[in-house]
Amino acid sequence: MSFIVNLIGILLIAFIVWWFWIYKGRSEASLEGDKIDIIVDSGVYEPSIIHASLGKPLTLRFIRKDANPCAEKVIFSGLDLSADLEVDKPYELSFTPQKKGEFEFTCQMAMYRGMLVIE
């Protein structure tokens, strides 16, 4: 019994490490056209990984569904962009990516997390 409980505990820790850090398969989307809708709800951006092309104009349309104040800002710290989101009011963030790379976008507290991949 004791062995089983300890084993379950250790497996649980391994699972946490794998699920939250090692496994990378989050909801991904590539841009079709130049616009994409990102739903902000219940602690996540959906899709949370967005692929876009260098030098092509891009519009990220954030639609905030979550009234929790945590969701009220989205910040792209690497791109010097940010937006204040209102509940049920889409916000269009339009820009032309000028550098390649992975740019994280988060809420003010870095709990909501997403990634913009410029290729």
């Binding site: 398969g25 219940s42 602690g43 949370s48 709990m111």
Partner: peptide, 19 residues
Amino acid sequence: GRFFTGALKSFKHHSANMD
């Protein structure tokens, strides 16, 4: 309820938060 839906949704996205 929102803690549970939030937790589930983040879990599916391989992230975790206060919920």
